[in-house]
Design a protein around this nucleic acid. Structure first.
Lengths: 195, 195
DNA sequence: GTCTATACATGGATAGAC
DNA sequence: GTCTATCCATGTATAGAC
């Protein structure tokens, strides 16, 4: 059936999000203009406001979407029984998920300060929920003597920082596959928390 | 002796750098205006240009100064003989140095993309030189069997990411002293690279 | 060395025609 | 749903007086 010329609501929306994510990751939220986003999408600046009330909401939607994808993907996973297998599963999941979404990870970490207070609180809650999963694994393992760490909260943050650091150097098409990177990091994680 | 009223070249210069570092860390380079920096310093915007040719040079000077401080502080240290002691020394040095300069560390990492191509290359060279020191320690230790890591380059980046991650959670005046934090991280680093 | 004043570009966001 | 045109705020940087 016929559609009015120039009407692409089902295409333009996702395209705006894709382009904004890429530009925010590359140059930073504050350094990217709505005109630049529109130009890359192939529309005029005014058209963007059919999809987002303002620039801040566009950023927040991207970050919230990323965090919810992360939690949903994590929740969809079968959790092994013993602590060591759980930690390996978390490590491999974290690396694989984050390597596939370099832009979203970068934006979600770097642009926390660009969020309004209210939006920041929302994202922080989601991020904390994810961190808590790792801390639970560590805490239980410490209880049963499978792991030994000086402080489960600090170890959680230290491991996540280490794992997310993959994004600073990994480039798709490099000499290592995702699985090889997973294995390299798992080796270090396993030993770092060993008794 | 008398000084012309309103003349403070020896005070204003450092103040501009301090204020700019703090504001860049808090809001990001692109989000901070020269007017805002001037306002916090207590001068008019035009006066800033007696101290920096432009905003980009101000950022670059801050980052270059930080990296040179880092390398100088590192070079001033006595290097222990055996690999394990070298790694502990590096770990404690990195944490203590970075914890004391949270703003500079944050800016130097987050604002790499705000640098011009030429300035970026200069900073990258300095950063690489620092990373190479850690990689040398790891490489030698692997040779002599003191350490075992899957890949010294990746291990270097993983450890630095983990250590620098302290800055995401540590706040001065918290429950842990700098030395306690050093010890907690050293425990994990030591084990992570153990054979 | 700092000020006031300003040139000039670019930003977010909106109004109304199609 | 998109466009053109525009409002108005804010940005970097400079000129010239003091």
């Amino acid at each position: 059936m016929a559609r009015t010329t120039g009407s692409h609501s089902d295409i333009t929306g996702p395209r705006i999000r894709d382009v904004a994510m890429r530009l925010f990751a590359q140059h930073g939220y504050a350094a990217v203009s709505m005109r630049q986003i529109a130009s890359d999408v192939g529309v005029q600046a005014g058209a963007l406001y059919n999809y987002t009330p303002d620039k801040q909401s566009l950023l927040f939607g991207l970050m919230q979407g990323h965090m919810e994808d992360l939690l949903a993907a994590r929740a969809a996973r079968d959790v092994p029984e013993d602590s060591l297998a759980q930690l390996e599963d978390f490590t491999r999941f974290h690396i694989a998920f984050h390597m596939e979404r370099a832009d979203a990870v970068f934006v979600s970490y770097m642009e926390l300060r660009s969020l309004s207070d209210e939006n920041f609180a929302t994202i922080e809650t989601l991020r904390r929920r994810y961190e808590d999963e790792l801390e639970q694994i560590l805490r239980q393992g410490v209880c049963t003597g499978v792991f030994s760490v000086p402080d489960t909260k600090i170890a959680t943050l230290a491991l996540i920082a280490m794992l997310t650091g993959v994004n600073t150097w990994y480039r798709t098409g490099g000499r290592l596959s995702v699985e090889e990177v997973e294995t390299i990091y798992w080796d270090m994680v396993r030993k770092a928390v060993a008794p």
